[in-house]
């Protein structure tokens, strides 16, 4: 049996998960949560432009109630695990099993670059998230870190040019991931309408670009000296 083995004697939940559409729905739903988190995260982070005091107060606010913080973290972690796990199983099915012999020639005529590179943009974003947590949450990213001084950590971190560039690349990947991911989630959840879907796809792209610009503004702000200690 394959990675997505069908156990039809199993429960209804297993039936859902074993169908590729079930996994995709899990990916769409978890992706939607992560997307909302990313939006909220950006809005919070943009406060860096209001100065150190404001930003550090915001950082402290997030940690006022450890139980809530951990609930949110565990929630997000669950979403990440589901998203990655489902996509990994589908990756095995799609790339290793469903077409054992490939084409000598194959042209893509209907799909966007972003949609075809989800399996690249996803892992790059994941790698970035891991480093991002090491750098700014755990303080083991190799840049100066002091607990409770989020603003200072941020500025010190982004003053290292290679790190900022990596950050920018990751944000570009996030943008392309969302180019396709946002509307694809709607499609997977069964929402498609000849009038609204094209609007949704445009809107998804605009949001993705806005997120990129928003996130990019922070390291760029640091590197250009607009944000400084």
């Amino acid at each position: 049996m394959s990675a997505t083995a069908v156990g039809f004697g199993d429960s209804r939940a297993a039936r859902f998960w074993n169908a590729t559409i079930g996994k995709k729905i899990v990916m769409a739903a978890s992706g939607a949560v992560l997307f909302l988190f990313v939006v909220a995260h950006l809005l919070g982070n943009l406060q860096v432009f209001l100065g150190a005091e404001h930003f550090n107060a915001y950082a402290r606010l997030l940690r006022v109630e450890p139980a809530l913080l951990w609930a949110a973290r565990l929630g997000l972690l669950t979403m990440v695990v589901l998203h990655v796990w489902a996509s990994f199983q589908l990756l095995l099915l799609n790339k290793m099993e469903a077409r054992p012999v490939g084409y000598v020639k194959k042209k893509n005529i209907g799909s966007s670059y972003a949609s075809r590179t989800m399996y690249w943009s996803g892992p790059i974003i994941a790698a970035f998230v891991i480093y991002h947590l090491m750098q700014f949450t755990l303080g083991i990213g190799g840049t100066p870190f002091e607990e409770g001084k989020a603003y200072e950590n941020l500025v010190a971190g982004f003053q290292v040019i290679p790190i900022s560039i990596f950050y920018l690349i990751a944000m570009a990947m996030l943008m392309t991931h969302l180019f396709h991911g946002v509307w694809s989630a709607f499609q997977t959840l069964g929402v498609n309408h000849p009038r609204y879907t094209p609007m949704l796809r445009t809107l998804a792209k605009l949001i993705a670009i806005a997120l990129f610009l928003g996130f990019a503004s922070i390291p760029v702000g640091v590197m250009t000296g607009i944000v400084h200690t």
Binding site: T20, K24, L93, E97, A98, S112, S115, W183
Partner: peptide, 12 residues
Amino acid sequence: TVEGFGSCTNIG
């Protein structure tokens, strides 16, 4: 799934 088809990634 039984037939071994892959999954849709909505790429068109």
